[in-house]
Amino acid sequence: MPVPILKQGDYLIASIQSALIDSEVLELRDDLADRIGRYRSQGIIIDVAALDVIDSFVARSLRNIARTARLRGAVTIIVGIQPDVAVAMVQFRLNLEWLQTALDLEEALAMLDRHTRERDRDGG
């Protein structure tokens, strides 16, 4: 089942509903890259609360999504990393410096609003 992607104003919100198989992760990447262009989105929020694990493949895929989005002019924020998943990611020593995170959707939206305002101000 593809991950549903909602358009909310200038942002896209991808809500992962369950554990994903690898091909679904790659599908999500392609769907997001496509929609950023179509909707001229400024930001992407990916809700990973339903992911059972974030292993190196998923982490790498999320990073690729963030990099692709960046090239398309959008910022990516990951929300909902569960406490046990966070422990595993740290113990695994995944490289997480690239990662922009927020605890929940509300905080992520506020971050994107701030980011967009700053960019508009600097650009204008």
Partner: peptide, 13 residues
């Protein structure tokens, strides 16, 4: 729960 997730992550890899 945390150890179960560590195990699941290792199995996934």
């Amino acid at each position: 729960r945390t150890d179960a997730t560590l195990i699941a992550t290792a199995i996934s890899e």
